[in-house]
Design a protein around this nucleic acid. Structure first.
Lengths: 206, 206, 206, 206
DNA sequence: TATGAATGAGGTTTCATTCAT
DNA sequence: AATGAATGAAACCTCATTCAT
């Protein structure tokens, strides 16, 4: 994902499971404490090794973050692209995107939480420009679907579509901050409840 | 708010304008860059002084954060308590709380953004235990109102009230991440749109 | 000695020689310049490393001081306890304590000098409360022996025993301020001279 | 005392009582906490003013120390010189010097304590060279008297006179660390007890 | 005389990173 | 693969000192 990856420590692609383990550990700590507040030593502690040893596996703390986020976004877009390629109606598209999003939160909770908290600052770094690309595609997919729904008469025309987009987008992703995999609700159940609220409202109809 | 406030630099309460100016500056930088990524030098630069000079006014970077958050929460609860004391019906209470919340975002955008991003880690520090207290009161107010609404038959009984609470709560506060005071929408307009969406849904009624 | 010693850098107890070397270096500088006037950079210079590198081995400048003093006191009390356990007569006990003291000065000159200069302020810090404990035991041992000697008729009854205790105590320990190991006088020789003066006086007998 | 005293704040000789008050305050704090550990703010707090205000009265923290020490030494030498000019016998000279010393401790306890703790480092600063001068005169007076006493047969010849000098000198001055003016013993009484111990010993004569 | 606010140098500490083993 | 020790930059903070009022 990041543009320039010299030969670097990617060479260790020979033992990718260890890499993945370490990245998962790092992601948990980043999510719990914030990227800046996370020292490389904390990650190493959590992984049962010394700080310096991490540099056998990764170029830098930043490259860990990079790999966590880019891996997540790659998988996210696989799911989204499948949904978008299905050419569903606007309501069904929204339902599918929301459901897919909660599934991603289930699979990549830490990465989503990191993305939420850090992406704003990171976008400024050349290495993380791909975050901006992703955001643009994201907005296009969601906003487009909402607009199509308004045009088709399935979504209300009296709401500011841009405001609605922001509300919907944020509420979905911020769920990563409280969601715990294996909890009371499956991702699909959460998606169902959320969609029911957003589509039909919480008020009893007169 | 924070437990031990010796005589310390709080003594300068005599000339609070400069203090407030500096705290506003600090809050902007914290909100823009994140608390940990904000160096005390950046704050000083933004305030047009040297880093060390900040310590004439404040004990530490952390105490600036403390004062920003506690001031915000104090004002927030003044507004909330007024609403709760009015003994409105559940729907009207939700409407008033949402409107009040967007007004607070309008007034304390930076503080709200900081609160959103940092409160999770901060709660662990004894000094910031009051954040947890506030969260508990917050949950009680919102969740209680939703439950009362369900009991009264004004809110739908088929939605998980706890999930609904989380969605509603998050959507309100994340707005601080994109809201710009003086922008296209007034806080009241945003609240209206938001309430319309959450209460009645975005789908056109069958 | 100090109450809370998390895992921290004490963990390096596996390779204690480097630690001890560095502490010896630090003790020399502390003794020569005073604890407060000693910058951590001066210690690092004397040790041939950079200031930051010291923090690989120690938590803080204060913890270096703590370890220097507590190590010294531990060894001192080993010697003292052996003397006190021997149940000698009062005069012989004083002789043995004085001799042991000068031996400790010989072995831990820097630590003793630091103790002399800094213990008064340090006792106020919770971390250094053990200094007060040590002082109490110290007083009990010396004062008790003097009192026993007076009761037994081997020490003069016309002197204020408390004043005498202070004079004796001080004279022993201030020696650390001028004593140089390997100098003209061995610790035992100094002890002998000192005991002769204190026991029999410097005046020629009438 | 200190060589170069430009026009400086000595100009305030108009109101010398305030000056003296402030110096007494400063001396107490220096003695209690050590010169380096004493911030100018602590002195100002103790004097009931702000740190900056001290600079109306004094050029610098160092010049306060200078004035405290030089004033003390001036008075000390007035007393010593009177004793030395009296041409007493060696034993009577020692008695008079010790008595005079305890009187100085009574009058200048803080200054003596500071002198004890700080003079070693200070001597290196040009401004405080006079401390070295004083030490030389001091040694000459005491050591000379002891040697004269040995030659005259009033002091024992079997003791190392240099060691004895150090013991006597240190024990006298270190008393400043525990002496409290207005306590159980007058300076003269302490001197009597001390002289009795040092001259005749604490052991009962066989 | 004293205050309030600031400066600027320097101190302690943290931390990502490197590297020989 | 990992350790142990160190580097060096930069962070937070302290403090003597200055100065307009």
């Amino acid at each position: 994902m990041s543009a320039t990856k010299k030969k670097s420590n990617q060479a260790n692609a020979a033992a990718p499971e260890r890499r993945r383990e370490l990245l998962d550990t790092a992601a948990e700590v980043f999510a719990a404490q914030g990227y800046n507040a996370t020292t490389v030593r904390k990650i190493a502690d959590a992984a049962g090794m010394l700080a310096g040893s991490l540099y056998y596996h990764f170029d830098s703390k930043e490259s860990m973050l990079d790999e966590i986020l880019s891996t997540f976004l790659t998988e996210l877009w696989e799911g989204y692209d499948a949904v978008l390629a299905a050419s569903l109606g606007p309501r069904e598209t929204i339902e599918a995107l929301v459901t897919e999003s909660f599934r991603e939160i289930d699979r990549h909770r830490a990465a989503v939480a990191i993305y939420q908290k850090e992406s704003r600052h990171l976008v400024d770094l050349p290495r993380f420009h791909y975050l901006a690309d992703s955001q643009r595609r994201f907005e296009k997919a969601w906003l487009g679907t909402l607009e199509r729904g308004v045009a088709d008469g399935v979504f209300r025309a009296d709401l500011d579509v841009r405001l609605t987009y922001r509300f919907v987008r944020d509420t979905v992703w911020v769920a990563a901050s409280w969601y715990r995999p294996g909890g009371r609700h499956s991702p699909e159940e959460i998606a169902r409840q959320y969609l029911s609220m957003v589509l039909d409202g919480i008020a009893v109809r007169a």
